Computed example of a mutant assay.
Amino acid sequence: MALTSFRDRFEQTGLTWPDIAPANFPFAPAVRIGNIVYISGQIPEAGDDIAYAGKVGETISLDEAKQAAAICAANILFWLSRELDGDLSRVVQVAKITVYVNAVAGFSDYSTVGNGASELLLEILGDKGRHARAAVGMAGLPLNVPVEVDAIIHVR
């Protein structure tokens, strides 16, 4: 699958390509070491807004949590694109993502929430988006978001 039209594929998902300003944090949104890019945990941030806030199973439905995870994955692609000077054809493979889910006690559908991020990466990057994954429950996340996703990506 040619990656020259990744922005076209992205727009077809119904999401808007992220435009995120780097925050003044004591860490970077992306760090490249050799042929590996590490993407810091991304939250469902859309422009200047947080698209979803709350706990899954309380104020956030399973479908909303999947959508929040997809937005997190979109933000991963945004920072990856910036790290690669806009050229996602340099992606060799998404190696691993971790999906953190802020959920109520007793919630167990973490994998379904994680599918929101996984499916978006596959849709945009094709087989290069296939990855190992962990999806885990958390008692809370920054800004009370329902989902946070980080990634390790091999590039050339």
Rank of each mutant, 00 (worst) to 15 (best):
N115D: 13
A151C: 11
A46T: 13
A30F: 04
I36E: 13
L3F: 07
E123K: 12
I71M: 04
L3K: 06
G126D: 10
K55G: 01
A2R: 10
V101A: 08
A95C: 12
E11L: 11
D87E: 13
T59C: 10
I76P: 01
L80N: 05
T59P: 00
V136L: 14
F6Y: 11
F107S: 07
A21K: 13
S108D: 15
V149R: 02
R130S: 07
Q93D: 11
H131D: 00
L125Y: 01
T59G: 11
N144R: 05
A117R: 00
W17S: 11
V31W: 07
G41T: 08
A70D: 05
T13H: 13
V147S: 02
I153R: 04
L62S: 07
R130W: 02
T59K: 15
D85A: 09
S61I: 02
L15K: 12
E123C: 10
A103Y: 00
D85I: 03
E148Q: 15
T112Q: 11
V147Q: 03
S89I: 05
V136P: 08
K128I: 04
V101L: 11
F6E: 03
F78H: 06
P26Q: 13
F25I: 10
D19M: 05
E148W: 07
A2D: 14
E45Y: 11
I43D: 00
Y110K: 07
P146E: 10
V113K: 02
D85G: 07
I152A: 13
D109Q: 15
L3C: 10
W79M: 04
P142N: 12
V104T: 14
R90A: 06
R130H: 08
V91L: 04
N102S: 10
Y52M: 07
L15H: 12
S89V: 02
A151M: 08
S40V: 05
